[in-house]
Design a protein around this nucleic acid. Structure first.
Lengths: 225, 225
DNA sequence: AATCGGTGTGATGAAGTTTTGAAAATTTTT
DNA sequence: AAAAATTTTCAAAACTTCATCACACCGATT
């Protein structure tokens, strides 16, 4: 789920946006000033930033410039002034959109969605764990750079493991997440697919660690030679 | 240089935008109505479309919907009305931005630049994948240099595949993008067209990879091993 | 060392998907 | 208006994947 950073010195404004954003399923963080926003962006990566222009400590343009030095996170500006100068200035700094106050929260969220759709689409999402690479957009798994064909269930299982790397996963959790909460099946079904997946992972089969009496954990470790 | 299509029934508006766009170095084409816009988009590919909502023959939303069936060209809407309804509706159809009339041409061009920068998909008249060449402007496909006649649906399908090379495409995605989001048809229709397209691609039929339980992926691979 | 409960494995038929051919329906062309 | 081309529907066939089972295996506990 996408993470949004809301930057505004007015609590009221932040609250309203937060309410709408949370409702739409976004993960929300707040900053009440420009300096706080910059430091937050240093620590963490956001998917989009909603940024007020007028703030007492550091104005939105400066914040945007600072952020752009490191990342390319999309920025939507909130402008209290409606002047063209501001708008253009905003674009020159490299903002992605702007909304003039007073604004409709619904419209703002529409713009957020539109930008996220644009920016997140072309990025080839992939995870790499040890010598295993999972390309989500192509739905291809590479083991040591070699394309490996997995069946749907094997892929889903690996996908879930990769997303929860290093976490102990109970059998129940694995089954309800990969098969579906309503799967009523044999005890050995999961084992069997673990077996198949391990076989396909070749020397990395040790990445799937058996937790006796609990379930499994996916982790990067040094395969035996 | 990027190609812009300006769609508005008012000559004055088109002229103004054209003046600014030409000054900024864009290649400009015009359409004075929705129908003309749609037919122009069928023949040629633009990098961005500036689209008025209110037009006598076919309104902007319908034009956008029609265009989106085939391509993913960015669209900026010109809205004479400032109502929120229009804005939201526009985004749902899949527009990239909108500007409310009366607008500042400078601002409009800023938005054009911002979107083009993001979508910076190099404008091409044709795509070549393996031994398959697709000439968009002529709507002709060559397999190993030999012109191959495809039916409209086959072409649309191949076109969508080629634009999304290497990406796993679900059946739903393929159907809603090639047939239209409102297609309510048989489950096996897609398969049948895949079959027909594969036949026409000759030895390159393996380029369309079946992803069991998911959909298909178009990729360049080495036929025969 | 024997037991016991949980885990790994190969085989197999069942279930689910895709492919295919052919015919019906629709649209376009003549 | 008929003919041709295209698209869609349908059902059987081919194919892949899956769940299940029986049994081997392993590791902890007694």
């Amino acid at each position: 789920m996408s993470k949004i950073l809301i930057v505004d010195d007015e609590d009221k404004i932040r609250d309203i946006i937060k309410k709408y954003a949370t409702f739409d399923g976004y993960e929300v963080e707040e900053a009440s000033g420009g300096l706080e926003a910059v430091s937050k962006c240093r620590e963490k990566e956001y998917d989009i930033i909603i940024l007020d222009i007028m703030m007492p400590d550091l104005d939105g343009f400066s914040v945007c410039k600072e952020i752009r030095k490191k990342t390319n996170t999309p920025v939507i500006m909130l402008s209290a002034r409606g002047e063209e100068y501001d708008k253009i200035h905003g674009f020159e700094v490299g903002i992605d959109d702007y909304v003039v106050k007073p604004f409709s929260p619904k419209e703002l969220m529409m713009r957020v969605a539109a930008i996220l759709k644009r920016t997140s689409a072309p990025s080839t999402e992939s995870i790499e764990v040890g010598g295993i690479k999972i390309d989500f957009s192509a739905r291809i798994v590479y083991v040591d750079g070699v394309k490996t064909d997995l069946t749907p269930k094997e892929y889903d299982l690996l996908f879930y493991f990769a997303k929860n790397k290093g976490i102990a996963l109970t059998r129940e959790k694995l089954i309800s997440n990969v098969w579906g909460y309503d799967f009523y099946g044999d005890d050995r079904t999961l084992d069997t697919h673990i077996k198949l997946l391990r076989k396909n992972l070749g020397k990395y089969n040790t990445y799937i660690v058996t937790l006796r009496g609990v379930g499994y954990r996916f982790e990067e470790n040094t395969p035996e030679e």
